[in-house]
Each structure stands twice: as C-alpha cells, then as structure tokens.
C-alpha cells in the first residue's frame, strides 16, 4: 500500500529553473584532487560567455590561491562535462558546446596532486 491519491498527485514548483537567474545560467566547477577548496563552486554566467572566459577569468578568480594553479598546463587539462569526457573550444560559447544551466564541469590536471601530493 502506498500514500493516498492526494499525496501522490502533489506537484511542486521547481525553485531553480533558469528563468530565475536574470539571464544567467548556473555553472558548477570542480578541480579534482584539490580539496583545499572544500567543495566545487557555483558561478552564474550568461550562456553566451565564450569558454575562454572560464580559463582566463573565472577559474583564476576561484583557484589562483592554490600553488598548483600557476603550474597548470592548459593543453593537458582533462575536462569532464556532466560526467562525460569533453574537449572545449575556447572560442565558442558555453551554450554552443552543451554547457547548460546547472551543468557540472570538472577539470583534472595530471601531475598536479595537491599540497604535498595529498589531494588537498
């Protein structure tokens, strides 16, 4: 047996759909094996932002305090978009390459394993 029809028919209003963010989309960014930043971060960006803005402005603002950040070889970064391997085009916009509202973009920096190799 399950709950009554009243309960099963209940519908909620999603609170975080894209139209609530004044033209921005939310993007989540996580840098693997750098847990000095305790959690992935959340930034609002217009969907027509070129990908290069991420590497030139957004990621440095978020992560430049880490000593590994300056050592990143951007040609060797491995990207995961919503769990799938991903090759970004720096000139195209986020929306043009499938980076949508509440997408998760992870970067892996082979050879850089955090403070003293501790994944911090």
């Amino acid at each position: 047996m399950s709950a009554s029809a009243t309960v099963l028919a209940y519908r909620g209003e999603p609170k975080d759909t894209a139209e609530h963010f004044h033209g921005n989309h939310l993007l989540y960014l996580g840098w693997d094996r750098h847990l000095m930043f305790c959690a992935p971060v959340c930034v609002p960006l217009p969907p027509d932002t070129p990908f290069s803005v991420l590497t030139e402005q957004v990621l440095p603002a978020a992560y430049a305090q880490h000593p590994d950040f300056a050592r990143i070889d951007w040609n060797r970064v491995e990207w995961l978009l919503d769990g799938q391997p991903f090759t970004p085009d720096p000139a195209r916009t986020l929306a043009e390459q499938g980076i949508g509202h509440k997408s998760l973009l992870r970067l892996r920096t082979p050879g850089l394993d955090g403070l003293g190799g501790s994944a911090s």
Binding site: G30, L35, C38, A39, P40, V41, C42, G83
Partner: peptide, 30 residues
C-alpha cells in the same frame, strides 16, 4: 574561499563529502 560553493539539493551542505571508497575525490551524484 572566494567563490560560493555548490550545494547538495537535499541536505543543503556544500558538496564537501568524498567518495565512500576514495577520500581524495569529491562524491558527485546527479
């Protein structure tokens, strides 16, 4: 940390927990 964190939709805690079998990797579920 200069940037606001990503939160878990249910417990609302920032996504600070790591994989049950790998404490060096953030646990992501979707």
């Amino acid at each position: 940390n200069p940037t606001l964190p990503m939160l878990c939709q249910v417990c609302q805690i920032p996504m600070v927990f790591t994989e049950p079998d790998d404490p060096t990797t953030t646990c992501y579920r979707e």
